[in-house]
Write a protein that binds this DNA or RNA. Structure first.
Lengths: 347, 347
DNA sequence: TCACTCTGATTAAACGATTAATCAGAGTGA
DNA sequence: TCACTCTGATTAATCGTTTAATCAGAGTGA
């Protein structure tokens, strides 16, 4: 019944060359003392046979699986494709595989997902939390990608600076009244972005913040945001804390007959898939997910390599904030000097 | 140097209870012959110690890793979150982990990604190809999620029927001239959807198909689609083959001052994250990704269990098409009896 | 009583890689 | 010549689980 793998193993190479298994292992890993010529011969023959080391055998002996876990508690996060790609790329460059564990939003399910990963023997994990969650329970090194201002964060985009960029851009276009639109008041990321925007405003500028989660608690999910009314109140710029909210604002304004960017400007965050293709295309701020993933994974891998025994540590990296990049497109333009009067102004 | 895992293993349980390792193994797996009371005692003690079987040990012995691979060649596919969630959920319900391998679109990189998965010892993989790709090379069972009309497909949403639903919906609203908007003429999925729409039209109805990939090849990426002109030509419904294209159409039309759904209707496919929150919310067709993933994974797992030796087979399932569900929202409405004359009509 | 079956357990051999310990032999210096 | 080192290899144990083979003992029927 023992279903042996199809490929050759160390002992096959060894007997085939008339040497011992240990020598083959040493030759391939370059660790023990093997003569140069023999190393050459063994490597050649291994390549010829298409030898692939058994992860299972190696894992059993070394106690390392060569696999990292990726946990995304944030259900259906639209950044997921980019994140997963970046992490997988960085991990596979470091010789690791990536095991995913999506926990469908639930906090209990999240710990359960983390446990599943640990049971599968991951050597470490990358966690991207919505809110700062207790990760310390995990029995392996953990790298957290959240926001630089959150304690326990390993590396993240500098959301605060991203907000600064947006504010500077809008200020430069002459905007004075900015409506910040977020959808989750608990989110560290969104609060940092909003704080960055506020701190980047110049004297004389004014901002208000609209939290969609609050609004929807009162008026139901998918309710209108009442942005036309805000235009009537003199807001000329709508700075959403994510492209999803930017899109929501953009379409609601357009539907109300307000032109973008002629009448008002709309900006977002994250440069999500639709940002370049909507009309007008979205001015937004992009995070360098490749750099972030690279830093997180290499810090994680370093910790794994140095920590002799599997333990639950929060990984730290030398660089813990990565600058965001402003992408100016068509949804932002000069502030309309004479903001038009909305028919809803009397409300 | 041998970093032993922290948790207890079979032999610890065995010595602690004064029985043999084999008995413990048999008791926990329920396989050999162990007396009821002893099974009870062993299970109890194992639970008490928090015993977790070592995947590495098991994998080495059985030749099965308990891990499935998930391959998504389609770069940054916005369906990725749903797909990954559904697959991971189905897999973990069947006791499997999910290793991801995104190949960043490149075909060569895709085979390389598949090889990485095989080298990591996955027992099988789920592949979601953009175009039908040669998967037969893989050295393990493969389940393909593409479209029912594609040879080699294991299970997929019935994109043709989805198109039918859209056509029926629009016909019922009185639309007679439909513009189908796709972005990839090579895609099996999009061709099925378009075919379904056409076949679902009633006598007297007319359709044209706009392929964005072609248009962009001539006019550059992100170019306008010229939809206002199409409105002038009497088209009252724009049926996009994906919500991303629907969004592009929706915003372009809104920007041109055309009201949706009063003037024209717009529909999409896939019920992506933004569909419910844009204004007007998108009428679309949803695929039951949970069912599809469940069928794919269980077919895959069945094949893995029955095939004694690891081989490269294309998995087949009993149900190979899953109905799509029409979601009527606000972007579709009665056809405007007197289509307004666009200022671009003279073009 | 003997041969036989059945039950409930144990023994021991894998799976494939890593690695500490060992060893044969050559070279070296006193 | 003897003791010692160094090189290049081998031996053998180990990681934790599964499972075929074995075994002791009890029960059974002739």
């Amino acid at each position: 019944m023992t279903a042996s793998r199809p490929g050759p193993n160390l002992s096959r190479i060894a007997t085939s060359l008339g040497v011992s298994v240990a020598t083959v292992s040493n030759a391939l890993s370059g660790k023990g003392r093997v003569s140069g010529q023999l190393v050459e011969r063994i490597r050649e023959h291994a390549a010829e046979l298409g030898y692939v080391p058994s992860q299972a055998g190696r894992a059993l002996r070394t106690g390392r699986s060569g696999v990292l876990g990726l946990v995304l508690p944030d259900i259906a996060n639209p950044l997921f494709p980019k994140i997963a790609q970046a992490i997988e790329f960085a991990a596979s460059a470091a010789g690791y595989g990536v095991l995913i564990a999506d926990s469908r939003g639930d906090v209990a399910a999240q710990t359960e997902a983390i446990n599943r990963l640990v049971e599968r023997g991951v050597d470490g994990m990358v966690v991207i939390p919505r809110r700062a969650t207790r990760i310390s329970s995990a029995a392996c090194p953990v790298a957290v990608i959240d926001t630089p201002s959150t304690p326990g964060n390993t590396v993240a985009a500098d959301h605060w600076q991203g907000g600064h960029e947006i504010a500077g851009h809008l200020a430069g276009l002459g905007h004075r009244r900015i409506l910040i639109i977020g959808n989750n008041q608990e989110s560290n990321v969104q609060n940092d972005r909003a704080g960055g925007i506020r701190s980047g405003m110049r004297p004389g500028m004014h901002s208000e913040t609209l939290w969609i989660d609050r609004l929807e608690q009162e008026n139901g999910s998918g309710c209108p945001l009442g942005l036309a009314e805000k235009v009537g109140q003199g807001f000329t710029a709508f700075a959403a804390l994510s492209d999803l909210q930017a899109l929501r604002a953009l379409t609601e304004l357009q539907q109300a007959g307000i032109n973008i960017p002629t009448d008002v400007s709309v900006t977002g965050f994250d440069d999500l898939i639709w940002s370049p293709v909507v009309t007008p295309s979205l001015t937004t701020v992009r995070m360098d997910m490749d750099s972030i993933a690279g830093i997180a994974v290499s810090a994680l891998v370093d910790t794994i390599r140095t920590s002799s025994i599997r333990e639950g540590v929060l990984v730290t990296a030398e660089i813990e904030r990565v600058a965001m990049q402003l992408i100016v497109r068509q949804s932002s333009g000069p502030a309309n000097p004479a903001p038009r009067t909305s028919e809803m102004e009397n409300m």
